[in-house]
Design a protein around this nucleic acid. Structure first.
Length: 112
DNA sequence: TGTGGCGCGTAAT
DNA sequence: ATTACGCGCCACA
């Protein structure tokens, strides 16, 4: 990633989200809520809204962000369908799998 | 498990 | 300045 702060990240808020996401290694996932907390925001929903557009994929691994209930969450603005399937594919490629719609190995989840 | 209300940034009005 | 909306989340029944 060139630099999440300087590029034309639609908004300064989004820039902070991307910067925080950069610190999530492959093979691991984080929650919308946890990611929000990391940047001092109390609304997980705002995070999803920021990731929706996803300016520079795959530098910013927005696919490593899942819901609190260990459900995949959404991708490219959708919570179902092919978009979500693509998200699961990316995660599977990193060793992260889902069983019956839920994260298979919670050990891969960063809770803070 | 299902539902309602809440939180907060953004785009539209 | 206001309103409406969204890759959610938590409390409560």
């Amino acid at each position: 990633l060139a630099n999440p702060q300087s590029p034309q990240a639609t908004t300064p808020f989004a820039a902070r989200v991307y910067a925080a996401l950069t610190q999530v290694p492959a093979g691991q996932v984080i929650t919308y809520a946890a990611l929000a907390r990391r940047i001092g925001c109390r609304s997980a929903r705002a995070i999803g809204q920021a990731l929706r557009a996803n300016p520079f994929a795959p530098d910013v691994p927005c696919h490593r962000v899942i819901s609190s209930d260990l459900t995949p969450g959404g991708f490219q603005g959708r919570t179902t369908g092919s978009a979500l399937a693509g998200k699961l594919d990316l995660l599977r490629a990193e060793g992260v799998t889902f069983h019956n719609g839920r994260l298979a190995d919670p050990g891969r989840l960063i809770r803070r």
